[in-house]
Nucleic acid binder design. Structure first.
Length: 411
RNA sequence: CGGGAGGUGGCGUAGUCUGGUUUAACGCGCAUGGUUUGGGACCAUGAGAGCGGGGGUUCAAAUCCCCCCCUCCCGACCA
């Protein structure tokens, strides 16, 4: 239970000038983010809570499929990149500089090279495979044009996973696992997504799939068949329905790649098979733009009043508005009970502002349940409950509230 | 990196074209006092900027000229 009056949560009525995308405007208005510079953001307590919720969902999804978490350095010597030649390929996006010893360093835009060095050092037998490692970490890219807040920024949070297998069939299985994990993860985050076969581009490799969320401000485009609903990467009539396709904008939230041996061969990362033969690891890599997921969730879960977080990622489960000063201590104990008995995280709005401000801030913050204690509580011990998403309202006593939440969360 | 729009108290803006009536205005927010109190209340008082930075023109510059920086949008780019 936290008290709004003592929390570092600040909302604004006015729309910040430096934002155009809904998700960006709302993230700033609801006090989730602080803009440091173009494409650089700091997470404020409320935004960080939502971020940690998303990270927890990702960890659960990855762990379920046997991936192990580690944490690599963002700082990398440039020599790490010369064997694969990507110091040249990624020259433009890499943020690089010299330290006091004139050593060339970069802030990792991605981590294939480093993970390959790590695995190469410890894995030398087929018996230690397959292996999937992942991390959730900040990535740095010198974007030519940062855009739409968290959608495209120069420093952003990514979940990157890497698989190591002894053969092509192993890679296929690892890829399949990550494919399933991603579906679980995006579903739990409350995102409606589409999977599309993609071009591996500078990552290299043979096969890749993108996870896309349809949104007005998407930077990618897929072509949808209006009759069967299938999506295609290229324009042209639907092969099955022969209908003309229509363009839809998409936010790319995840991308998985079958890399093959591009990195293992270049970096001489080998293991011994059953017959003692030296073979390069067969690799895959799997990314989720964590901060971008936050933006995609807000973008697709909002209305004219503000954000409407899906329950699973909401920074708090409910907000309790105290509309009569006298009720403050009673409200705190109601909140404490809900927290103790049902593990709910409650924000108690005990600020000395008008009811209108509290209701509107509650809608802006997008916490799934808005509870109000005021007149109705004074007269008949009734708490007013509103579902943020549907705006449905009902009333119940504190005792009934316990059952209400049991029902809501067992659905 | 090309094209467009901007930079004025903490936030959002007006003023810039046509220099002077500006000791820079308004709304929000903030502080103090009072009245309010269920869907962004009201009154009073008050604090807070010298107009993105630097040069220049002029008796006089937020306003005109030059250079630079920053932000947003469109495009190019995008693991």
């Amino acid at each position: 239970m936290e008290r709004f009056s003592q929390s570092f949560i600040f909302t604004t009525k006015e729309v910040p000038k430096s934002a155009e995308a809904q998700s960006h405007i709302l993230a700033l208005r609801a006090g989730l983010l602080f803009m440091v510079s173009a494409g650089i953001y700091s997470y404020l307590p409320l935004g960080y809570k939502a971020l940690r919720k998303v990270e927890a969902i990702i960890r659960k999804g990855m762990d379920r499929y046997g991936a192990q978490e580690l944490f690599m350095s963002a700082l990398q010597p440039i020599e790490m990149w010369t064997k694969t030649g990507r110091d040249k390929d990624l020259e433009e996006v890499m943020i690089r500089f010299k330290d006091r010893k004139q050593r060339q360093l970069c802030l990792g835009p991605t981590h294939e090279e480093l993970i390959t060095e790590i695995v190469k050092r410890y894995i030398s037998s087929y018996k230690q495979l397959p292996l999937i490692l992942y991390q959730i970490q900040s990535k740095f890219r010198d974007e030519p044009r940062p855009r739409y807040g968290l959608i495209r920024s120069c420093e952003f949070i990514m979940k990157d996973a890497y698989s190591f297998d002894a053969d092509q069939e192993g890679l296929r299985q690892s890829y399949e696992k990550m494919h399933s994990a991603y579906q679980d993860i995006f579903k739990e985050c409350g995102l409606k997504f589409i999977m599309a076969e993609a071009d591996p581009g500078a990552m290299g490799g043979s096969l890749s799939h993108e996870f896309m969320v349809p949104a007005r401000i998407g930077e990618d485009i897929l072509f949808a068949c209006p009759s069967c609903g299938k999506y295609f990467k290229k324009e042209g009539a639907c092969p099955r329905c022969k209908k003309a396709l229509r363009e839809e904008k998409m936010i790319e939230v995840g991308h998985i790649f079958q890399l093959g041996t591009k990195y293992s061969i270049a970096q001489e990362a080998f293991f011994l098979n059953q017959r003692g033969k030296r073979l390069p690891f067969i690799m895959g890599c799997y990314g989720i733009g964590v901060s971008r997921v936050i933006a995609a969730i807000i973008e697709t879960n909002c209305d004219e009043k503000g954000i409407s977080w899906p329950k699973e990622v909401a920074p708090y489960d409910a907000i309790l508005l105290v509309l009569e000063d006298k009720l403050t201590s009673e409200a705190l104990s109601v909140a404490t009970n809900l927290e103790k008995n049902q593990g709910l995280a409650i924000l108690v709005d005990d600020r000395g502002v008008s009811a209108g401000v509290k209701f509107n801030d509650a809608l802006l913050l997008g916490i799934p349940y808005i509870l109000a204690m005021g007149k109705n509580y004074m007269s008949s011990k009734k708490i007013d409950v509103e579902r943020r998403k549907t705006r449905e309202k009902l009333t119940c006593t504190p005792q009934e509230l316990v059952r209400f939440f049991q029902d809501e969360y067992s659905r």
